[in-house]
Amino acid sequence: MFTFIRLNFLSYNLFSFNFFNPKPGNYVLIGSFLSAVLIFSNTALADGIVVDKVYHPYVLPNEREVEWRMLAQRENGVSNDLAQRFAYGQSVTDNLMLEFYVLGERDSNDNFTLSAYEIEARWMMTEQGQYWADWGMLFEVEKEHQENNWEVTSGVIMEKEFGRTSLTLNAFLIYEWGDTIEDEMETEFRLQYRFRHLEQFQPAIEVYSGENYLGIGPAFMGVQRFSGQKQLKWEAAFITGINSESQGHILRLAIEYEF
């Protein structure tokens, strides 16, 4: 019930806003929302890693993909974590993509084990280029493998083109609960500013904020096309914590094959 109320609160604010023909007053709402995300993301309790993929709001019909993501975090004397996730995704309508993940993490004994499952829905809300920015939403449900711990995420994805560059923003509200974790609400904010230099090589800068973490770093991504809808996408980023509570470095890699 508590989850429902909290998610309803988010849904009301997001859906009551007219993304398609925003009025000047509504920019204050966007500004307030993003401001709130930035502010509250510094007040949540730290119990996870914020750095992950920056999502884009686009879905193509008939799209299928397999994906591998790796994340390595190193902080001198504090942590040396490794997490991987494997996914299969498929667009189920012209503007809705479902993706199923299995997550694995290296434990304290250096054993790599299955840690969680996740289902994710990405909804393309507007046609690319039709409005002043492109909008989408993301919904995720995650359950830990051996514990009765759950996490529900919902959020807004926005992308805006500026010539040969693209600015992508992700703002997420996360609610988690379970037997061995505290019930809590968290927020995350992700930003990517990408220069579409070459198809195979597009440098970017990424910023992550949430759970007392603030990190920034360079990223590189690209795509290699094959026949038909087949293409291989890759991403790599090296994110450095820049506030007093996030001193370490995080390397993230992602490879995605669409077919």
Binding site: N21, P22, P24, Y27, V28, G31, L34, S35, I39, W132
Partner: peptide
């Protein structure tokens, strides 16, 4: 906070001039 909100709102308004 109000100042930060105002700045962000202004930037978004300028970027997305309708």
């Amino acid at each position: 906070l109000s100042k930060a909100q105002l700045i962000i709102s202004y930037i978004l308004l300028m970027v997305s001039y309708n």
